[in-house]
């Protein structure tokens, strides 16, 4: 163990020398800034950190981070990261992806990566559009949206990223918003601290091809009524005047007004540690305008990490059988001599 003090890094130390090439005003800038800030504040060792991405606007992210990085191919980042993590469990691995990258072309990898629960963080920038290819609809585009590839409106039923993650047995699921920088920082920090696959959806504005997609959730005047901040162990209360809440009516959540015979105790209390993912799933289904959309940590539970299990099996086999040598490998089974 070295006793030398580690240099204190600033967010800027996490910036690579590359010019950031996102469109001016893109929500990605904010996420990049928060990431650098969080990693600096956590005292992360840059050379032990790897950012892996696929294809799309968000996937340019690794180029802008002064860490190790792989800008891979469309949809495959979770698989690339899986190989890296199994080979090098000690590295800190972040996957940066988008709605098209993760949920369309890479859906299969995302699903299996999450269920294996490798210790890595997956950040999905959800802008509900294909930006890099200039404006086709994505798996999260709402029904009826008019865009380049759906001039008469989208007819594909959209996916809810968090519902998918929960369906894939995710151990950590969270949501934040690009411009809600404090909250985003908190969620990134929680994800970094989670031991297992942390899946984060970030509402991200593509101001060029889908401007205002999340306006209801970001507008100063509406956001307190359209979103609800989840806090572990606390009742689900929202609204400008914190006078509204979510109550369970059977298996259905319902919006209720506090007072008039309804107290906080009648509300749904958030439990991110619930063993069963039902509550997290129910929360992931709450969509504007019927409901306020939850942000924060939906679920954070502990389960064995895949890469640890890989190593555990190797250690156990080695302990039981002894470390294999080429001699023993070559000479296994029946052999005979020819003189």
């Amino acid at each position: 163990m070295s006793t030398e003090a580690l240099p204190v890094l600033t967010p800027n130390d996490f910036a690579s020398d590359q010019d950031v090439r996102w469109c001016p005003g893109c929500g990605d800038y904010s996420i990049l800034a928060q990431m650098k800030k969080v990693l600096a504040s956590l005292g992360v060792v840059r050379e032990n950190t790897v950012f892996v991405s696929g294809i799309g606007c968000s996937s340019r992210f690794p180029y802008y981070m002064n860490t190790y990085g792989i800008h891979s191919i469309h949809g495959r980042a979770p698989a690339v990261a899986t190989g890296l993590k199994i080979a090098r469990p000690e590295l800190s691995v972040w996957v940066i992806t988008g709605d098209g990258d993760a949920l369309s072309i890479g859906g299969n990898h995302l699903m299996h990566c999450i269920r294996r629960n490798l210790d890595m963080n997956i950040v999905l920038f959800n802008n509900r559009i294909y930006g890099l290819t200039k404006g086709q609809y994505s798996p999260t585009s709402p029904l009826g949206q008019i865009n380049k590839s759906a001039p008469l409106g989208v007819i594909d039923n959209p996916l809810h990223p968090l519902s998918i993650a929960i369906g894939c047995e995710a151990t950590f699921v969270a949501r934040s918003i690009d411009v809600n920088i404090k909250h985003l920082g908190m969620v990134l920090e929680r994800a970094a601290a989670h031991n297992g696959t942390a899946f984060i959806e970030v509402y991200q504005n593509c101001n060029v091809f889908n401007d205002g997609a999340w306006e209801y959730a970001t507008d100063r005047n509406t956001k307190l009524d359209t979103t609800i901040e989840l806090e572990h162990g606390k009742p689900l209360i929202f609204g400008k005047n914190r006078d509204k809440g979510i109550r369970l009516n059977g298996l259905e959540p319902e919006v209720v007004e506090l007072g008039k015979g309804i107290s906080e105790d009648d509300l749904l209390f958030h439990d991110e540690k619930a063993a069963e993912p039902s509550l997290a799933y129910l929360l992931s289904r709450m969509r504007f305008p019927e409901y306020p959309e939850p942000i924060g940590v939906f679920r954070a539970v502990d389960r064995p990490r895949y890469e640890e299990e890989v190593v555990r099996q190797i250690d156990a086999a080695t302990k039981k059988q002894g470390e294999g040598t080429l001699e023993s490998l070559f000479n296994a089974g029946d052999t005979w001599d020819i003189n």
Binding site: V50, V52, Y68, I73, A81, G83, L84, I86
Partner: peptide, 9 residues
């Protein structure tokens, strides 16, 4: 693609 990740590592 996972071997690309492993190779990078």
């Amino acid at each position: 693609t996972s071997i690309v990740g492993a190779a990078f590592g």
